[in-house]
């Protein structure tokens, strides 16, 4: 076996036995599950934001719809929350179509702005809706009625559920990478005009990527609800939810299979530990550092951390060091 193979095998084993290593420590057990959940959201975002290059800053819409669907089927129908996941995914795909059809025709930033605005609209609407519990939000089952409620004290079951979903999502993404759609998306990202001139119906494939991404983000939202058992407008639809998905994917490497996971592995522990260790004004200082790290990465490693491990091109692109560039696209 090559060293590379051994390393890969080691990582797989480590991921599988992590909850055993974390042992009884509730902090580290929880941390593992949280990293995986964040990685699901960021990997879902990556399909449209990374592969298709359409930067959504409003994915909280889908996350929130997923979480609220789960809690609504419990509150109003008495079903296990996870039964709301398919509903949330279906609604999210519908919303993605409604936002995507007009805005994906336009150049980059419009789509970003539109996604922010729609997320805000939904957040404000949800806080005025009694059906959704208004500004107070809604809670899932206080005590598990059956195992179907997916309500556990230990974080270990969540860890393995999230791991299974993440593996499925990454497998699907990997498959798309090699399929026709993957080639089309890369072509569109490189130059939409060139892709169109070669007969790729760019709008349709961007929309497909957006809808697929929306569905899995909604699933992440439903899973979040099963673990936390509570959702309110801010934790479901807040702009920080959207931004975190984007930042994690971009930090690791957007448009790369493992980029979002790498980003989640760095940012989630950083945030959790600073929350528990510092708190108060100290937490402010942590976010100052967090912001500075993000700025430095954007400035010096615009393609994310994983680009460090790529083989470098033999010659740096001269045009990049020219004093002036025009429009970015």
């Amino acid at each position: 076996m090559s060293p590379r193979r051994i390393l890969q095998l080691g990582v797989v084993v480590l991921v599988l036995v992590y909850p055993l290593l974390a042992g009884n420590s509730p902090v580290y057990g929880r941390l593992g599950a949280l990293v995986l959940l964040a990685a699901i959201g960021a990997s879902a975002w990556n399909i449209v934001g990374g592969y298709a290059g359409q930067v959504s800053v409003g994915h909280a819409v889908f996350f929130g719809v997923g979480a609220y669907s789960a809690v609504v089927v419990y509150t109003h129908l008495g079903w296990p929350p996870i039964a709301g996941a398919p509903l949330g995914m279906a609604i999210s795909v519908g919303i993605a179509a409604v936002i995507g059809v007009p805005t994906l025709r336009l150049s980059g930033h419009y789509f970003s702005m539109a996604t922010i605005a729609v997320a805000e609209l939904v957040r404000v609407l949800s806080s005025t809706s009694d059906f959704l519990g208004g500004a107070q939000g809604l809670s899932g089952p206080p005590v598990p009625r059956s195992v179907l409620d997916l309500s556990f004290i230990s974080a270990t079951p969540y860890y393995y559920i999230f791991l299974a979903v993440l593996v499925f999502l990454l497998g699907l993404t990997r498959w798309i990478e090699g399929a026709r759609m993957g080639f089309y998306l890369r072509a569109i990202k490189d130059s939409e005009r060139a892709a169109r001139s070669l007969g790729v119906s760019a709008g349709r494939y961007k929309l497909y990527a957006y809808m697929l991404s929306a569905a899995f983000t909604a699933l992440a939202g439903s899973l979040y609800l099963t673990m936390f058992g509570f959702i309110d407008p801010e934790s479901g639809f807040g702009i920080l939810i959207s931004v975190k998905m984007l930042v994690m994917a971009a930090l690791g490497g957007a448009g790369q299979l493992f980029g979002p996971l790498v980003g989640a592995l760095i940012l989630v522990p950083l945030e959790e530990l600073s929350n528990s260790l510092l708190g108060g004004r100290g937490a402010g200082l942590t976010f100052v550092v967090y912001g500075a790290i993000i700025v430095i990465i954007a400035r010096f490693l615009p393609s994310g951390l994983l680009s460090l491990f790529e083989r470098r091109p033999a010659r740096r692109d001269r045009a990049k060091s020219a004093p002036v560039a025009g429009h970015a696209d």
Binding site: G49, G50, G53, V55, V57, G108, H109, S112, L246, V247, A250, L251, A254, I294, V295, I297, A298, R299, P302, S303, A328, D329
Partner: peptide, 9 residues
Amino acid sequence: GPMLAQILG
């Protein structure tokens, strides 16, 4: 750079 790097930065 890519639009994403702008947003990130």
